[in-house]
């Protein structure tokens, strides 16, 4: 069994559901966690990171994901994305999303430009703990959405599970690894992670803290998976990384 823990799905013609299914089959991936995408055109990603181009943050395609997870509930899980600048509305929105079958929260600091220490983010983190669904966010170089702030959240909300996307910030975020080792409720998702970074993380925080993800459509699932295969770790470690950890966080079998 292999579950891809991080796949983007949006409304555009780049990275469609058909393409995803073909790529999953090719890589031997059984299931995938979908998060809303398309707010950023990933084919021009660096322009967004440098702030030259602004994302279309108002149109979050949660509906696209909702449709897929309802039509193929055994194959796809969904994370619900909200804009914390909407404050109370964002919290209510997430709660509705969870009730509609979404299995986690996805935040996009690069799209919405908020601080991980803001009041609304704290409320969202708390809500995730109440519903026992994971809180997923990537971290940035921006100090308000840094690895450190994400770790501070994990410390503040011990009943919520947190997933740091893309192994943290940069090619080998040792802080993210050390925090994952320090806090039981903090996990790292491997997409975009370098081989050396993931290998170091395996030694630092162990396989029970790593979740395989591909970051489709920016990356091909087969190449992301190959990086994991090259770790040459024990079968039980592979199982943790490739499906057991995410199954545990999503409460699914």
């Amino acid at each position: 069994m292999i579950i891809d823990g991080h796949v983007h799905m949006g409304k555009g013609d780049f990275g469609t559901l058909d393409e995803l299914k073909q790529d999953m089959q090719k890589a031997g991936i059984d299931k995938a966690v979908l998060v809303p995408g398309g707010m950023i055109d990933v084919r021009r990603m660096t322009r967004y990171i440098t702030g030259v181009e602004k994302p279309k943050g108002d149109d979050i395609p949660n509906d696209v994901i909702e449709h897929i997870i309802h039509s193929e509930p055994d194959k796809f899980y969904g994370f619900y994305c909200v804009n914390p600048h909407k404050r109370r509305e964002a919290v209510i929105d997430l709660e509705n999303g969870i009730q509609k079958g979404f299995k986690g929260l996805k935040l996009a600091p690069i799209v919405h430009g908020f601080s991980l220490a803001s009041k609304t983010v704290m409320e969202l983190a708390d809500l995730c703990g109440q519903y026992n669904v994971p809180f997923y966010s990537h971290v940035l170089f921006s100090p308000g959405a840094s690895t450190k702030k994400m770790a501070a959240l994990a410390k503040e909300f011990p009943n919520t599970n947190f997933i740091i996307g893309h192994m943290g910030f940069g090619p080998a975020d040792v802080d993210a690894m050390e925090y994952a080792a320090m806090y039981d409720n903090l996990y790292l998702e491997t997409s975009q992670g370098s081989f050396a970074g993931i290998k170091t993380a395996l030694e630092t925080c162990g396989s029970s803290k790593l979740i395989f993800g591909s970051e489709f459509p920016l990356y091909k699932p087969i190449s992301s998976l190959m990086t994991i295969r090259e770790l040459n770790c024990k079968e039980s470690d592979f199982d943790n990384i490739l499906y057991k950890n995410i199954q545990y966080l999503l409460n699914v079998k």
Partner: peptide, 12 residues
């Protein structure tokens, strides 16, 4: 809160 969050986002 919105302004505060935006400011903290960009300079911590």
């Amino acid at each position: 809160e919105i302004i505060s969050s935006k400011l903290e986002f960009s300079c911590g």
